[in-house]
Write a protein that binds this DNA or RNA. Structure first.
Lengths: 120, 120
DNA sequence: TCACTATTTCGATAATTCCGGAAATAATGT
DNA sequence: ACATTATTTCCGGAATTATCGAAATAGTGA
Protein backbone atom coordinates (compact mmCIF):
# COMPACT_ATOMS: atom_id res chain seq x y z
CA UNK A 1 0.00 0.00 0.00
CA UNK A 2 1.22 3.45 -0.89
CA UNK A 3 1.23 6.51 1.30
CA UNK A 4 -1.40 8.29 -0.72
CA UNK A 5 -3.83 5.42 -0.38
CA UNK A 6 -3.08 5.10 3.32
CA UNK A 7 -3.70 8.80 3.84
CA UNK A 8 -7.06 8.46 2.14
CA UNK A 9 -7.95 5.65 4.51
CA UNK A 10 -6.71 7.44 7.62
CA UNK A 11 -8.60 10.58 6.67
CA UNK A 12 -11.70 8.52 6.02
CA UNK A 13 -11.56 7.01 9.48
CA UNK A 14 -10.68 10.28 11.18
CA UNK A 15 -14.29 11.38 11.41
CA UNK A 16 -16.67 10.11 14.02
CA UNK A 17 -19.63 9.23 11.83
CA UNK A 18 -17.45 7.43 9.35
CA UNK A 19 -15.61 5.61 12.11
CA UNK A 20 -18.98 4.52 13.47
CA UNK A 21 -20.03 3.38 10.03
CA UNK A 22 -16.95 1.27 9.61
CA UNK A 23 -17.35 -0.17 13.08
CA UNK A 24 -20.93 -1.07 12.33
CA UNK A 25 -20.11 -2.59 8.98
CA UNK A 26 -17.26 -4.61 10.43
CA UNK A 27 -19.69 -5.99 12.97
CA UNK A 28 -22.12 -6.86 10.22
CA UNK A 29 -19.73 -8.76 8.10
CA UNK A 30 -20.24 -10.52 5.85
CA UNK A 31 -23.89 -9.59 5.28
CA UNK A 32 -23.35 -5.84 5.13
CA UNK A 33 -25.89 -3.09 5.63
CA UNK A 34 -27.93 -0.93 3.27
CA UNK A 35 -27.21 2.78 3.09
CA UNK A 36 -30.59 3.60 4.56
CA UNK A 37 -30.10 1.22 7.46
CA UNK A 38 -26.78 2.87 8.22
CA UNK A 39 -28.36 6.31 8.14
CA UNK A 40 -31.14 5.18 10.44
CA UNK A 41 -28.83 3.35 12.80
CA UNK A 42 -26.59 6.35 13.25
CA UNK A 43 -29.34 8.97 13.08
CA UNK A 44 -27.82 10.82 10.13
CA UNK A 45 -29.68 12.24 7.11
CA UNK A 46 -29.51 10.02 4.07
CA UNK A 47 -27.60 12.45 1.91
CA UNK A 48 -25.06 13.12 4.62
CA UNK A 49 -24.60 9.40 5.07
CA UNK A 50 -24.28 9.01 1.34
CA UNK A 51 -21.37 11.42 1.19
CA UNK A 52 -19.66 9.73 4.10
CA UNK A 53 -20.07 6.40 2.35
CA UNK A 54 -18.57 7.92 -0.77
CA UNK A 55 -15.51 8.96 1.22
CA UNK A 56 -15.12 5.49 2.71
CA UNK A 57 -15.62 4.02 -0.71
CA UNK A 58 -12.96 6.21 -2.32
CA UNK A 59 -10.64 5.10 0.45
CA UNK A 60 -11.48 1.50 -0.49
CA UNK A 61 -12.51 0.75 3.07
CA UNK A 62 -16.00 -0.28 2.03
CA UNK A 63 -17.56 -1.83 -1.03
CA UNK A 64 -21.02 -1.23 -2.40
CA UNK A 65 -23.31 -3.56 -4.27
CA UNK A 66 -26.81 -2.97 -5.42
CA UNK A 67 -29.30 -5.44 -4.06
CA UNK A 68 -32.76 -4.79 -5.36
CA UNK A 69 -33.60 -1.25 -4.45
CA UNK A 70 -31.02 -1.01 -1.77
CA UNK A 71 -27.29 -0.56 -2.00
CA UNK A 72 -25.60 -2.80 0.48
CA UNK A 73 -22.30 -1.69 1.91
CA UNK A 74 -19.67 -3.98 3.33
CA UNK A 75 -16.50 -3.32 5.25
CA UNK A 76 -13.41 -4.30 3.27
CA UNK A 77 -11.43 -5.90 6.05
CA UNK A 78 -8.58 -6.77 3.72
CA UNK A 79 -8.15 -3.11 2.89
CA UNK A 80 -8.37 -2.24 6.55
CA UNK A 81 -5.68 -4.78 7.25
CA UNK A 82 -3.51 -3.18 4.59
CA UNK A 83 -3.83 0.15 6.34
CA UNK A 84 -2.82 -1.30 9.69
CA UNK A 85 0.06 -3.08 8.04
CA UNK A 86 1.14 0.12 6.37
CA UNK A 87 1.14 1.94 9.67
CA UNK A 88 3.17 -0.75 11.35
CA UNK A 89 5.66 -0.88 8.52
CA UNK A 90 6.02 2.87 8.75
CA UNK A 91 6.73 2.58 12.41
CA UNK A 92 8.94 -0.48 12.30
CA UNK A 93 10.81 0.19 9.14
CA UNK A 94 14.05 -1.61 9.71
CA UNK A 95 13.58 -1.50 13.45
CA UNK A 96 12.27 -4.86 14.63
CA UNK A 97 13.50 -4.06 18.11
CA UNK A 98 10.74 -1.49 18.28
CA UNK A 99 8.09 -3.33 16.35
CA UNK A 100 8.62 -6.60 18.13
CA UNK A 101 7.01 -5.76 21.46
CA UNK A 102 4.36 -3.81 19.61
CA UNK A 103 3.23 -6.87 17.72
CA UNK A 104 3.41 -8.88 20.89
CA UNK A 105 1.21 -6.48 22.79
CA UNK A 106 -1.07 -6.41 19.80
CA UNK A 107 -1.82 -10.09 19.91
CA UNK A 108 -4.18 -10.01 22.92
CA UNK A 109 -6.60 -8.14 20.69
CA UNK A 110 -7.96 -11.46 19.48
CA UNK A 111 -6.49 -14.17 21.58
CA UNK A 112 -6.88 -17.46 19.77
CA UNK A 113 -6.02 -19.32 22.96
CA UNK A 114 -4.00 -17.51 25.62
CA UNK A 115 -5.65 -16.48 28.86
CA UNK A 116 -2.68 -15.15 30.84
CA UNK A 117 0.77 -13.94 29.98
CA UNK A 118 2.17 -17.18 31.33
CA UNK A 119 4.51 -17.06 28.39
CA UNK A 120 8.26 -17.12 29.07
CA UNK B 1 -7.94 4.59 24.04
CA UNK B 2 -11.14 6.42 23.27
CA UNK B 3 -12.55 7.24 19.89
CA UNK B 4 -11.95 10.93 20.18
CA UNK B 5 -8.27 10.45 20.91
CA UNK B 6 -7.98 7.92 18.10
CA UNK B 7 -9.62 10.31 15.67
CA UNK B 8 -7.13 12.99 16.63
CA UNK B 9 -4.31 10.60 15.90
CA UNK B 10 -5.75 9.36 12.62
CA UNK B 11 -6.35 12.91 11.47
CA UNK B 12 -2.83 13.86 12.46
CA UNK B 13 -1.38 11.07 10.34
CA UNK B 14 -3.73 11.70 7.42
CA UNK B 15 -1.52 14.45 6.01
CA UNK B 16 1.56 13.75 3.96
CA UNK B 17 3.99 16.08 5.70
CA UNK B 18 2.93 14.91 9.13
CA UNK B 19 3.08 11.29 8.07
CA UNK B 20 6.60 11.92 6.80
CA UNK B 21 7.48 13.60 10.08
CA UNK B 22 6.26 10.66 12.10
CA UNK B 23 8.07 8.24 9.83
CA UNK B 24 11.27 10.19 10.23
CA UNK B 25 10.94 10.45 13.98
CA UNK B 26 10.18 6.76 14.32
CA UNK B 27 13.35 6.06 12.41
CA UNK B 28 15.29 8.37 14.68
CA UNK B 29 14.19 6.84 17.91
CA UNK B 30 15.23 7.21 20.57
CA UNK B 31 17.42 10.25 19.87
CA UNK B 32 14.73 12.32 18.21
CA UNK B 33 15.16 15.29 15.89
CA UNK B 34 15.03 19.04 16.39
CA UNK B 35 12.20 21.01 14.82
CA UNK B 36 14.61 22.79 12.52
CA UNK B 37 16.17 19.54 11.38
CA UNK B 38 12.73 18.21 10.54
CA UNK B 39 11.88 21.32 8.58
CA UNK B 40 15.13 21.10 6.67
CA UNK B 41 14.85 17.37 6.06
CA UNK B 42 11.38 17.70 4.60
CA UNK B 43 11.92 21.05 2.90
CA UNK B 44 9.14 22.80 4.73
CA UNK B 45 9.21 26.32 6.21
CA UNK B 46 9.87 26.37 9.93
CA UNK B 47 6.54 27.87 10.91
CA UNK B 48 4.64 25.41 8.75
CA UNK B 49 6.56 22.59 10.34
CA UNK B 50 5.86 24.05 13.74
CA UNK B 51 2.11 23.91 13.22
CA UNK B 52 2.32 20.35 11.95
CA UNK B 53 4.32 19.41 15.01
CA UNK B 54 1.67 21.03 17.17
CA UNK B 55 -0.98 18.84 15.56
CA UNK B 56 1.06 15.70 16.11
CA UNK B 57 1.72 16.83 19.64
CA UNK B 58 -1.95 17.43 20.41
CA UNK B 59 -2.60 13.95 19.08
CA UNK B 60 0.06 12.68 21.51
CA UNK B 61 1.95 11.02 18.71
CA UNK B 62 5.09 12.99 19.43
CA UNK B 63 6.68 14.52 22.48
CA UNK B 64 8.81 17.64 22.67
CA UNK B 65 11.67 18.49 24.96
CA UNK B 66 13.84 21.52 24.95
CA UNK B 67 17.50 20.78 24.55
CA UNK B 68 19.58 23.89 24.66
CA UNK B 69 18.27 26.16 21.91
CA UNK B 70 16.57 23.38 20.05
CA UNK B 71 13.37 21.58 20.77
CA UNK B 72 13.83 17.92 20.15
CA UNK B 73 10.82 15.92 19.03
CA UNK B 74 10.42 12.21 19.51
CA UNK B 75 7.87 9.75 18.19
CA UNK B 76 5.70 8.32 20.93
CA UNK B 77 5.62 4.74 19.79
CA UNK B 78 3.49 3.68 22.72
CA UNK B 79 0.80 6.12 21.66
CA UNK B 80 1.14 4.90 18.10
CA UNK B 81 0.69 1.38 19.31
CA UNK B 82 -2.47 2.42 21.13
CA UNK B 83 -3.88 3.79 17.91
CA UNK B 84 -3.17 0.59 16.03
CA UNK B 85 -4.67 -1.40 18.86
CA UNK B 86 -7.75 0.77 18.85
CA UNK B 87 -8.21 0.23 15.13
CA UNK B 88 -7.89 -3.51 15.48
CA UNK B 89 -10.28 -3.63 18.38
CA UNK B 90 -12.75 -1.64 16.37
CA UNK B 91 -12.47 -4.10 13.57
CA UNK B 92 -12.46 -7.26 15.63
CA UNK B 93 -14.89 -6.34 18.30
CA UNK B 94 -16.34 -9.63 19.33
CA UNK B 95 -15.32 -11.24 16.08
CA UNK B 96 -12.09 -13.14 16.58
CA UNK B 97 -12.88 -15.22 13.55
CA UNK B 98 -12.23 -12.12 11.48
CA UNK B 99 -9.42 -10.62 13.47
CA UNK B 100 -7.54 -13.87 13.88
CA UNK B 101 -6.17 -14.18 10.35
CA UNK B 102 -5.59 -10.46 10.31
CA UNK B 103 -3.25 -10.64 13.27
CA UNK B 104 -1.62 -13.67 11.76
CA UNK B 105 -0.95 -11.94 8.47
CA UNK B 106 0.28 -8.98 10.45
CA UNK B 107 2.95 -10.90 12.28
CA UNK B 108 5.43 -11.28 9.38
CA UNK B 109 6.00 -7.54 9.68
CA UNK B 110 8.51 -8.14 12.48
CA UNK B 111 8.69 -11.74 13.52
CA UNK B 112 10.60 -11.46 16.79
CA UNK B 113 10.02 -15.03 17.79
CA UNK B 114 8.50 -18.21 16.43
CA UNK B 115 4.77 -17.85 16.43
CA UNK B 116 2.53 -20.54 17.62
CA UNK B 117 -0.33 -21.86 15.62
CA UNK B 118 -3.63 -20.13 16.13
CA UNK B 119 -6.46 -22.43 17.05
CA UNK B 120 -5.83 -26.08 17.76
C1' DT C 1 23.28 44.17 27.39
C1' DC C 2 23.67 42.78 22.51
C1' DA C 3 23.85 39.73 18.69
C1' DC C 4 22.67 35.28 17.18
C1' DT C 5 20.11 30.99 16.66
C1' DA C 6 15.90 28.10 17.21
C1' DT C 7 11.20 27.88 17.48
C1' DT C 8 6.65 29.45 18.07
C1' DT C 9 2.70 32.62 17.64
C1' DC C 10 0.05 35.90 14.96
C1' DG C 11 -2.62 37.02 11.08
C1' DA C 12 -4.30 36.51 6.54
C1' DT C 13 -5.60 33.77 2.43
C1' DA C 14 -6.77 29.74 -0.15
C1' DA C 15 -8.47 25.27 -0.06
C1' DT C 16 -11.04 21.66 1.90
C1' DT C 17 -14.49 19.41 4.68
C1' DC C 18 -18.99 18.89 6.89
C1' DC C 19 -23.76 19.31 6.70
C1' DG C 20 -28.33 19.01 4.97
C1' DG C 21 -32.43 20.77 1.91
C1' DA C 22 -34.00 20.04 -2.60
C1' DA C 23 -33.89 17.78 -6.85
C1' DA C 24 -32.36 13.93 -9.69
C1' DT C 25 -31.53 8.94 -10.59
C1' DA C 26 -32.59 4.01 -10.16
C1' DA C 27 -35.28 -0.14 -9.19
C1' DT C 28 -39.82 -2.35 -8.23
C1' DG C 29 -44.65 -3.31 -8.57
C1' DT C 30 -49.15 -2.25 -10.56
C1' DA D 1 -47.02 5.09 -17.49
C1' DC D 2 -47.33 6.02 -12.59
C1' DA D 3 -46.51 5.78 -7.67
C1' DT D 4 -43.35 4.27 -4.20
C1' DT D 5 -38.98 3.38 -2.10
C1' DA D 6 -33.84 3.80 -1.88
C1' DT D 7 -30.01 6.32 -2.79
C1' DT D 8 -27.26 9.73 -4.85
C1' DT D 9 -26.07 14.31 -6.81
C1' DC D 10 -26.34 19.27 -6.70
C1' DC D 11 -25.82 23.35 -4.28
C1' DG D 12 -24.58 26.66 -0.80
C1' DG D 13 -23.14 28.11 3.73
C1' DA D 14 -20.45 27.35 8.02
C1' DA D 15 -16.49 25.53 9.94
C1' DT D 16 -11.97 23.74 9.73
C1' DT D 17 -7.36 23.09 7.81
C1' DA D 18 -3.05 24.20 5.21
C1' DT D 19 0.29 27.42 4.21
C1' DC D 20 3.52 30.89 5.09
C1' DG D 21 5.38 35.97 5.83
C1' DA D 22 6.29 38.67 9.64
C1' DA D 23 6.77 39.42 14.39
C1' DA D 24 7.40 37.59 19.00
C1' DT D 25 9.53 34.44 22.43
C1' DA D 26 13.32 31.67 24.40
C1' DG D 27 18.00 30.20 25.04
C1' DT D 28 23.20 30.93 24.35
C1' DG D 29 27.47 33.11 24.57
C1' DA D 30 30.37 37.34 24.41
Amino acid sequence: MESEQAILALAALAQSTRLDVFRLLARHEPEGLAAGDLARALAVPQNTMSSHLAVLSRARLVTARRHGRSIVYRADLKAFQSVVLFMLRDCCNGRPEICGPLIEDLTPCCPPKPRRKANA
